[in-house]
Simulated scan of single mutants.
Amino acid sequence: MNKQFYSLLILLTIFIWNNNNIALSKESKINISQLKKQAKRGDAKAENALGDYYDSITRMPVNEGCFPYNRRQTIKYYTKAARQGYTKAQKSLGMLYTQLPCSEYDKGIYWLKKIAFKGDVEAQMRLGYVYYMTSNVIEETIFWYEKAAKLNNTTAMLELGRIYEKYDYDKAIYWYKKGMALGNAYSSFGLCNLYFMSQDTPEEEIKRYKEKGLNKDNKKSDKYCLISANQGKAEAQFTVGAQYMTGRRVLKNEKKAMEYFKKSCLQKYDMGCDAYHGKMNFNDVTY
């Protein structure tokens, strides 16, 4: 793409974006005054709609730091609706307060809990994330991720697997397998990595894992890596391809190797592309 074409593309994008915002502004003027009248009468739905409106235009360029006028208006109307028990506003407010870089976690947690205890998975996931990022009390993170996981959220299962790897291998394996069974390629790749040991892994390290309840096993690692590759994980596809290319722990099959490299490359995984285009020295690859 030449520079002139690239510059024209940027200008066109800005033109379309500006015109869309102008259209939004013109359309909004028709309804905003009516919504404000309804909001003054305590209509929670109208208050939430106003919160949505001001949230949509907060993304326009402003020079007032974390709390431009639009954001203050967003919070004002969401709060009015949230205090009346309007769940959409409570969720929006909770998400808004936990956004970086302008987070107010205590307020966000307060509103998210209102709906998380009622079974809102997205709120449960955000609470798990917030506690993980801001607290040394891992129990709160686990509490919320487990609630989401029990509602079949595979991302929560994956996060639990990652957390439990540091504390309890049996529980890590349990949650990884739950996620894998529901088709989560990252969970099956978690198992692949958990069981893997390279030819350079010291015996002392393998012994330490065993003492903590984990028997490293490359047969299991290969099994789960293949599952992950077939579920679509690009890194696992590269790993399986590398095995077929070199014949390590499998019968050498360059055709199959190239099939997996291609799949990996199509997902823009750099090592997969290098392998597919013949730019990789497999003597330098540990797997």
Score class of each variant (00 low, 15 high):
K3N: 12
Q4G: 04
Q4V: 04
F5I: 08
Y6H: 13
L9Y: 07
T13E: 04
T13Q: 12
T13Y: 09
I14P: 14
I16R: 03
W17Y: 13
N19Y: 07
N19E: 04
N19I: 11
A23R: 12
I30D: 13
N31I: 08
I32L: 07
L35T: 00
K36G: 00
K37M: 07
K40G: 11
A46C: 08
A46E: 04
A49W: 00
A49P: 00
D52S: 10
D52G: 05
D52K: 07
Y53L: 00
Y54P: 02
R59Q: 11
N63G: 13
G65Q: 04
K80Q: 09
A82P: 01
A82I: 09
R83N: 15
Q84I: 03
Q84K: 10
Q90R: 03
Q90L: 03
M95V: 15
T98S: 14
Q99S: 14
L100I: 13
C102P: 01
C102L: 08
C102G: 05
E104G: 07
I109Q: 06
Y110C: 00
W111K: 04
I115S: 06
K118C: 07
V121P: 09
A123D: 09
M125E: 12
R126P: 10
R126S: 11
G128P: 12
M133V: 13
V137Q: 15
E139H: 13
E140R: 13
W144V: 02
A148F: 06
L151E: 11
N153S: 13
N153Q: 04
T155F: 15
E159L: 15
L160K: 03
L160D: 09
R162A: 08
K166V: 06
Y167V: 07
Y167T: 15
D168G: 06
K171V: 10
I173P: 00
Y176H: 00
K177C: 03
K177M: 02
A181Y: 09
S187A: 10
N193V: 05
Y195P: 02
F196I: 02
M197A: 15
S198V: 07
S198Q: 07
D200F: 11
E203K: 15
E204C: 12
E204D: 14
E204S: 15
I206R: 14
I206F: 08
I206V: 15
Y209P: 09
Y209V: 11
K210G: 12
G213H: 10
N215Y: 07
N215P: 09
N218E: 14
K219Y: 13
K220Y: 05
K220Q: 15
S221F: 08
Y224E: 08
S228F: 02
T239A: 11
Q243C: 07
M245K: 12
T246F: 06
T246L: 08
V250Q: 12
L251E: 14
K252F: 03
K252C: 12
N253M: 12
K256R: 08
E259S: 09
E259K: 14
Y260I: 06
K263C: 04
S264F: 01
S264P: 06
L266T: 02
L266K: 07
D270C: 05
D274G: 10
M280H: 09
N281W: 03
N281Q: 06
D284Q: 11
V285W: 08
V285T: 10
V285E: 09
T286F: 11
